[in-house]
Structures are given as C-alpha cells and as structure tokens.
Design a protein around this nucleic acid. Structure first.
Lengths: 326, 326
DNA sequence: CTGAAAGCGCTTACAG
DNA sequence: CTGAAAGCGCTTACAG
C-alpha cells in the first residue's frame, strides 16, 4: 500500500497536523522539523490523496475547462496551456466538453459543481458571455475566468486579445495591398469575437475612406463549410470582391477551396485571409495570411488567474502573419 | 448548502446506508423504500460528492486519458468519444497530456495514480506499446485499455482497426488507378501503426506483382513538416513516384503543399493519399483520398471496456474514402 | 512552533 | 430487506 500522512508522521516523529503544514507550505514550522518531514516524504514517496484533501478542506485541486467545439486545434491548445499552468500547482484538469446548444448544459455544469467541487472554471466563447451560465456560477460561488469575453469585461478575471485592433490591422494589410472591395465573413452572432472582428474591419475601411457595403458582410459559423458557402455566394456576384477576410482560419480554408474549384488564382483573382493562425493555416495552399492569436498563452494565463489571487484582466499581443494567400 | 446523503436519509425516513444502496443500484432494497429515496433525491436535487465516494469506497469515478500530440484532431476526437461514454456512468475524465519523450512521464503517471486513484487509464499510441508504462500500471494494479496496440494485443483490453488491411486496401486503390511506382511515407518507428501500415502497403504491392523498392519507403513523423520533407525528397529523384501514400493525413497535406510549390498537377502528375480522414482531409486542395479511421468510436469503445466488465478486444471497421487527390 | 480531536460525506464490513 | 458503527486520509478549528 501507498504511504499516507500517518506513515510520514510516524516516520518523522511528528503529528499528522505538522505534516499537513509542511505539505501546504504553511508558516510556523520549525526549520529542522520541516527538513525531517520533507525527508520522510521523499523517502516514502508520499503523495497526498486528492479525494481526502478535497473532502477535508476547502480546495478540491481540480479545475474544469468547459468548452464546445469551435475547432479541435483551439480546444487542444487551450488544454495544453491550462495543463502547463496547473501542473505547477499539482492541480488536475477536468475536460468538460459539451454539445453546442445542448439543453443539458446547465444541469451538467450544476452537477459538475456538486459532485466535483472544482476550484474554478475556465469558460471559452460563446460561454464567456452566456448570462445564464455566469449567473449560475455566481450563485453557487464558484470562481471562473473568461477567455475572450465580449461585454462586461470587468465582471470577472479574463484573458483576451484586442480583437478589434487585430481585425483592423488585418484589414489594413489588405487595403495596403491595393484592395478596395474587401468582403468579411463573420462568426456566429453569440460569439463576442464575431462582432469585435467586424468592428475592426469596419474601422479599417472607414479610416481608408472606403464605403462599407453591407452586401460584402456575410454571416458564417467559424467552420469550414460556412466559409465555403460564404465564398460561393460572394464569388457568384456580378461584382465580386477582390479580397475576402474570413473571421477564422477554417472559414478561410473553405473559401480557398471554393476559389480553387472555380479555377481562380490566389491571390491574383481573389486574396483570402483568415484569423487565428491555426495549424491548418500552414497546411492549405497557398498558406494563409492570418492574425496570430496566442491561444496557448491565453489558456496559461486563464489558469494562472484562476489559481492565483490576482483578479485582473490580461490582454495578450496578437501578430499579423503574412503568407501567400494575400 | 447542498444536500448530503444525511439530508436524503432523514427526508425519506431511512438510514444513510439505504440511501447509499439506492445510489449504487444495489439489490435488496424494498420497492417502496427505493421509491421514497428516489423522490427525496429528486426533491433535494441531491448529487453524491465524488471525493467522499472515492475516499470511502473502491472507485474514484475518474478515468484518465494519457496522450501526447499526434494531432489535435485525433486527441479531440478521442476525448469526445470517451466523454460520450463516461457521461452515462457519471464518470469524469482527467485530461493528462504530456510532452513526447518527457523523462517525467513515468513520475507523472505514478503521481496521477497516487493522488487521483483513477479507475482506469486509456493509452493511445505510442504509449499503447510502452513496456515501461504497461509494467508500471500492472505493478500498481490499475486497469488500462489500449488504443491501437501493436504487439501482445491480448495483454489488455484494446480497441483498434485492421491497420494492415486498411493500408493494403488504400494501396490497392492506387494500383487500380494504374500506378506502379507508389511511394510510402511512414510514421514514427515507436508507433505500432507505422509498421502495420507499411506491412499493408507491401502486401498490396506484392499481390500486384510490383517490386517493393526500399528507396520509395521514406520515414516521416506523422506531421505536416515531415510529410513535406519526404515528398520533397521523393519528387527530387530522377525517377519520381507517380503516387504517394502517406501514413497520415497531415503528412499527405504536407506532400500536397510541396506538389503545389513545384507546380505539379494533382493527381495528374502526382497522386497523393493519406490515412485517417481527419477534418483537414477535406480542407486541403484537392480533397484527400484517405482511409477513414473511426477515432471517436474507438474512444467510445475504449471507455466502454474500461468501465464495463468485458475484458475483450474490439476491432472497428475502416473505410476507403476516395476524393480528388487520387 | 506543535498537537489532539472532530469532521468532511460517503462506503465497507458486519449484524440482524 | 435494513441499519449502526467504523473508517477512508486529509483539513479545520481550537488549544497550548
């Protein structure tokens, strides 16, 4: 059997309470005592049982990542960043995917809180702005950190990039390439990032004294299929745009495919840019010009805010990545 | 505060032991008693605390997925399948990514077992065949299920597809298209699937009386970059192949990019096929001919084996998907 | 700076 | 078919 706190206590000649103090790095432990306990911990290869710590104390040493599926690459990068940070504190991560629009979402989060008592949750879009979920967490007194929230940024700790500025910079790049008729494909309406990126697109056009044409703004769903559909509609017009700025790399990839099918040269006939710098941005042909969003860093910082005592907001830098598609 | 088992017991006029029996679906509970307890559970919205169940009992209601990063899409599909199955039993999933080749892997798994007492682990390649890891789990008496193991399939419950047959079928498709000089890009040597897919490739060529040329077998690492490198080497030859069968879709995507750079027509000048039918197989241009591997189903079955009592092996069907790249 | 006692919310082992 | 007692391995609240 594995060593327990009792074994460590008797091996080092102290009470279990003192071992507990050492484990939790509390003050007021004699230097010599601490050394002896640490030696016994190492000797016995003792690791505290999380269930016992959770049941006895105020922390569970678990956090949960609630996410649906914008893109596997996004979710995976989020998990990596969160893991990187949680590992430092010995905190475990519960993966809590859910199906978008599932009516059971509330019940599942409620059950998660009741059964697992997570020390906190990390919310990604569109949950970052889901009022019902936020209200539930606040009612139950569970800490949470939001990734890329839209409104009420100060309502909770949060991490994000400047989506408006980033979209504006990307659009300005297209303007600098000589484009005047630039289309934009948006994400879902309930993603705050959709509206933010649209705002940045508008701002760039207005600054360049280019009329914003409502017909060139097409709704998408951040995925490949909706990007393909949007591009098809745009390129079927009598007066097609010369450039398409898609709100995600997946949608840009869909647009690329449609352009290829139509035998168009890229970027000669149609320039295409994405957003995110997902791995697939480098897979497609030609490689995508896009805006890098540091997802793994955002995730690391989200976990850092959750585990730490700092209740702030953190904005991380974005970066324009120019490749062959523009 | 949330209701506990005591609240349910007093609300239904029984002992906590009887409530426990109902929760665990044990036999020998009177029908009327069971009904009363269930009513109280619903009324109080009672959910048993997992930490307490774990500490008191033999199960922790947690399983862990140990995985590195072959591809985010693969990992994500695995998580979805596992989640789908675990949800049914109210079991939570600990995401335990690790860095490939990390010397700390052993210690991390050891710590995971000690601190979280998972009811079982799911291992994906290359861990499915990592003798040191398997030995550790067996020594500590932790159940595990392997996904796509190579040797000693009967050593543990396992799920897989017929990689040899699948690779053979894909190669036969290329032969049927008239190709005689078919190259193969393999995955890492420590992935059993690499050798299996290579064996299928060889078998198809031999069955078609085509000489297997060692020079046309190039090592890769299952990722985009290694696929691009391999294709570059193959297409630089004086006598390049007319078709490339890459052991993964990511490598095939890398090969596609190289072919585009060289101005080659696909599949006219060079046919390219992948393996897996990842989402990206449909993103690239032209869309990839590939072999569908039902990752989510494999994952569901892995979790099912872990949670159930059936200690078998399960082979799932694969399917050839012919698209524009061949 | 250290420890004895009680308790977290369940399950187990035993008794009836 | 049901229950009383003990225990899982920690932390808390209190005392010294």
């Amino acid at each position: 059997m594995r060593a327990t706190i009792k074994d460590v206590a008797s091996a080092s000649g102290v009470s279990i309470k003192t071992v507990s103090r050492v484990l939790n790095n509390e003050r007021y432990v004699g230097v010599a005592t601490r050394k002896r306990v640490e030696a016994a911990v190492a000797e016995l290869d003792f690791r505290p049982n999380l269930a016992a710590r959770s049941l006895g104390g105020r922390r569970s040493f678990h956090i949960a990542l609630i996410c649906d599926n914008p893109s596997p690459a996004y979710v995976y990068a989020m998990q990596q960043g969160i893991r990187d940070r949680c590992e430092i504190d010995g905190v475990r991560v519960l993966a809590q995917p859910y199906d978008r629009g599932s009516p059971r979402l509330h019940g599942e989060i409620d059950a998660l809180i009741s059964t697992s008592n997570p020390d906190g949750l990390i919310l990604t879009p569109p949950l970052s702005d889901d009022e019902a979920v936020l209200a539930l967490l606040e009612k139950r007194g569970v800490r949470y950190v939001r990734v890329s929230p839209g409104a009420h940024v100060e309502r909770s700790p949060a991490v994000y990039i400047d989506n408006i500025g980033a979209a504006r910079a990307l659009t300005e790049h297209l303007v600098a390439r000589g484009h005047r008729r630039i289309a934009h494909v948006t994400g879902q309406r309930d993603y705050a990032t959709s509206a933010q990126r649209l705002a940045g697109y508008r701002a760039a056009l207005e600054a360049a004294a280019i009329l914003v044409e409502p017909d060139l703004i097409v709704p998408g769903r951040y995925d490949f299929a909706s990007g393909a559909e949007a591009a098809d509609a745009l390129l079927s017009r009598k007066d097609p745009p010369s450039a398409i700025f898609a709100g995600s790399d997946e949608m840009a990839a869909g647009a690329l495919m449609v352009a290829h099918r139509r035998g168009l040269a890229i970027p000669g006939d149609i320039a295409i840019a994405g957003f995110g710098d997902d791995a697939l941005a480098s897979y497609v042909w030609p490689p995508l010009t896009t805006m890098r969003q540091p997802v793994r860093d955002l995730a690391w910082n989200a976990a850092d805010l959750l585990l730490g005592t700092d209740d702030g907001q953190r904005q991380l830098p974005h970066a324009l990545v120019v490749r062959g598609s523009t």
